[in-house]
């Protein structure tokens, strides 16, 4: 805004000086555009090559086609892997959200002995490198003669998602205005009613956010999954194995599809929030 008025009032400044001035003022915006470009280059590349008429190895641009999008399951195993990832993701999300929300309420709402130890136990899995989490869990499964596979992977995912759920829900609980619950109590709601009618609806967006986070963490996890999944293929595992001999374009279709789907969910969520706020 201010830039325009400056330009209009001092038209005699030479172009280079004007550019320098503009640049100085917008340096941080230029920087922002560059940072976003860096973030989106591989996303754009993945999207572009989902239209590649590539045949087996999707390395060189060979021509535009919609076939990959029409038949995303065309490459062997791509959709089995995707289905596994979704199943594991959903199960891990449900369990970790329930367990994590309970812990968040305990830590966020109650004062009790061992609270700081509890906080530490939640922090530790996040401070442990994934490879250690994955490797140690696999060792345990091997000791108990449990074969790595579908359920061990679900367990592994629940384990590393819990902490993230707790942190997210706890933040939401901390930002609640305690007067709202006091008001409910003043209006003769008992503890359970207050919780169900006031506290829970207010914390719900935090829980939903935590569930989305858990799902995306689980869906995108490779390291821990690679240790505990045995012969079960998930989508990231499929990509990793296929990377050596060339990833089929269908994987790009699924990656791009997930991108747009998630973006749509986020934008719809914002829209709903804004309408509610009105």
């Amino acid at each position: 805004m201010s830039k325009k008025t400056v330009d209009a009032t001092i038209p005699t400044i030479p172009l280079t000086a004007r550019f320098q001035r503009w640049f100085g003022r917008n340096l941080i915006r230029v920087y922002m555009v560059l940072a976003f470009t860096y973030l989106f280059i591989p996303v754009a590349y993945t999207f572009a090559f989902s239209f590649n008429d590539s045949g087996k190895s999707n390395l060189i641009w060979k021509g535009f086609t919609l076939d990959n999008w029409k038949n995303p399951c065309g490459a062997p195993e791509v959709c089995t892997a995707l289905a596994n990832s979704i199943k594991i993701g959903l199960l891990a999300t449900i369990f970790s959200t329930i367990l994590g929300t309970m812990i968040a309420f305990a830590i966020g709402r109650h004062k009790f002995k061992g609270r700081s130890t509890s906080n530490l136990l939640i922090f530790l899995p996040m401070a442990t490198p994934e490879i250690v989490l994955g490797a140690s869990l696999l060792s345990l499964f091997l000791v108990f003669k449990i074969n790595p596979g579908f359920w061990p992977t679900v367990i592994a995912h629940v384990m590393f998602c819990i902490s993230f759920v707790v942190v997210t829900v706890k933040a939401r609980i901390a930002s609640l205005d305690p007067r709202l619950e006091q008001a409910a109590m003043d209006l003769y709601a008992n503890e359970f009613q207050t919780f169900r009618r006031v506290t829970l609806p207010l914390v719900a967006p935090g829980i939903a956010g935590a569930a989305l986070l858990a799902f995306s963490l689980s869906f995108d996890d490779f390291i821990i999954t690679n240790f505990n999944s045995g012969t079960v293929t998930t989508f990231p595992k499929f990509v990793y194995t296929a990377a050596a001999r060339g990833i089929p374009a269908q994987a790009n279709v699924i990656g791009s599809g997930m991108f747009f789907l998630a973006l749509a969910i986020v934008i719809a969520g914002q829209f709903v929030n804004r309408r509610k706020a009105r």
Binding site: L39, F40, I41, P42, V43, Y45, T46, F49, S216, F219, D220, F222, F235, P236, V239, Y240, A243, I247, A251, N252, G255, S256, M258, F259, L261, A262, L263
Partner: peptide, 12 residues
């Protein structure tokens, strides 16, 4: 960018 699998982006 998170929503596109991080392995796909790394391979990209």
């Amino acid at each position: 960018p998170f929503f596109t699998s991080f392995l796909l982006r790394t391979v990209a």
